[in-house]
Design a protein around this nucleic acid. Sequence first.
DNA 1: TAAGTGCGTCGTT
DNA 2: AACGACGCACTTA
Length: 172
Amino acid sequence: MHTESEIFPYTLPVPTPDGEFLARYSPKGLCGLEFPTRPKARKTSRASAPPPRQVLGWHAATTNALRRALAGRAPRRLPPLDLSRGTDFQQAVWRRLCQIPCGQTRSYTQLAQAVGRPKALRAVGGACGANPIPVLVPCHRLLAANGSLGGFSAGLDWKRALLAREGMAARP
DNA sequence: TAAGTGCGTCGTT
DNA sequence: AACGACGCACTTA
């Protein structure tokens, strides 16, 4: 018997000029995105179970959105994002991140205020580090209060590059 | 100015 | 109970 939980998540490659990202799909939508991993063997999608039509549609949206985001342009349309695996606090942070327009930045403090926990700025950093869909959920648009980069799970080079492509300059 | 230290704060493990 | 993708005050060089 095949239940959804046995088949999902589907993992599909996303070829981009920056390398091959990996997109993961739950029954609800895109639930994970991974930066290109260096030399190793690619984690392939389950060959035994071809993705349903719906997932392929989502994946097309993901591919277009990601390529556009990597070029420093706002995606025209996003696949449904499944952020349900996060805590309430994390989901609140992630949703708020999605409201920061391309080409703009906020501070960790500002985001903490925006989710109604003005003193939880450090926890906001933690939530960013747990962001399952980087780039499309733009955690790279959060900078430290003094304008410096702050941190980035995938490496500060990525954060710098993403911001630069959006026309943002990181403070030396 | 730049770099390092200490501490408050709070969600997560 | 310990640990951060923070921020601020303060000390040193």
